[in-house]
Design a protein around this nucleic acid. Sequence first.
DNA 1: TGCGATCACTTGCCTGGGCAAGTCATTCCG
DNA 2: CGGAATGACTTGCCCAGGCAAGTGATCGCA
Lengths: 160, 160
Amino acid sequence: MDEPSTWLDTEQQDIWQDLLTVVIALPAALDRQLQRDAGMSNFEYGVLARLSMAHEATMRLSELARVCDSTLPRLSKLMDRFEAREWIVRRVDPSDGRYTLATLTDGGRRQLAESAPGHVAQVRRLVFDPLTAVQRRHLGAALSRVADTLRRETDCGPTG
Amino acid sequence: MDEPSTWLDTEQQDIWQDLLTVVIALPAALDRQLQRDAGMSNFEYGVLARLSMAHEATMRLSELARVCDSTLPRLSKLMDRFEAREWIVRRVDPSDGRYTLATLTDGGRRQLAESAPGHVAQVRRLVFDPLTAVQRRHLGAALSRVADTLRRETDCGPTG
DNA sequence: TGCGATCACTTGCCTGGGCAAGTCATTCCG
DNA sequence: CGGAATGACTTGCCCAGGCAAGTGATCGCA
């Protein structure tokens, strides 16, 4: 009746349903906690965290956008908001006037430090606590395959 | 130096990074394909699919919103767009005037049938093709634990 | 050297979605 | 029976993000 190559079998459908739940509800749960406790979204937290890990807490916007899976307009507008809160400062890259450098301020670093424990606890509670050590290892192995596929997809050929 | 219960170890950080990639890039990839080939988002596809599976392709909006992980305002506005494209019709529930019933039209069903193969192929390509049968089974086991946790989270206590 | 091409970012416009308030139907309870 | 309480949407307002066009800076090549 069904084309085997077109449809998913029962096991795949169950996995797919759970995966859909995770990709929808997990970001939503992370956003709720961070919004409530720190007044920022999961994406905003990720940007601050990436910046804090960079050398001298400074990165070019294009590079920051890339590692944060963001577009440049989106990041540009976020930087406007962060500058208004004085969490970052922008300045022109002295070595190439086309680039803009963003640097985390002390206030931004403080904000990140205050938000981190609650966020990490949420990640631990929702993702790692429900798993045994073996399940965690297996999840990691499978996720790395899927994540690699998606990264190739995004980088080179967003063929759809 | 670090509180063991506060921070993630290296294995967990790697898994977390891959999971972040998946929850961000997977919906984006699904949206791109569906938008390009069918002029709709992944969420819109899910709503049509759920409706098509219901008895007589009809559901109450509140029930449809629940199974689609949507809010009522969001779904209400989507129904406006779907009605404009004549993919669904709305009518008051005769058994209780507070409810609104949505029914998939023939046009909506046709649209779904045309979109399904490409969407399923994309899911298969991005999620299942990179995995061995064993990895797939392991992924399913771990995901079901995490998904269950998230569903409890959403239903009862969005404690954050 | 100078002018067009490229690059990095910014801005404007539009759409989708969240939240809170409003509307209408039904139920509860005196 | 009637008014208050509840329930199921719907609407209005606001903001974040996508895309396309605009702005400077730098590069390439004649």
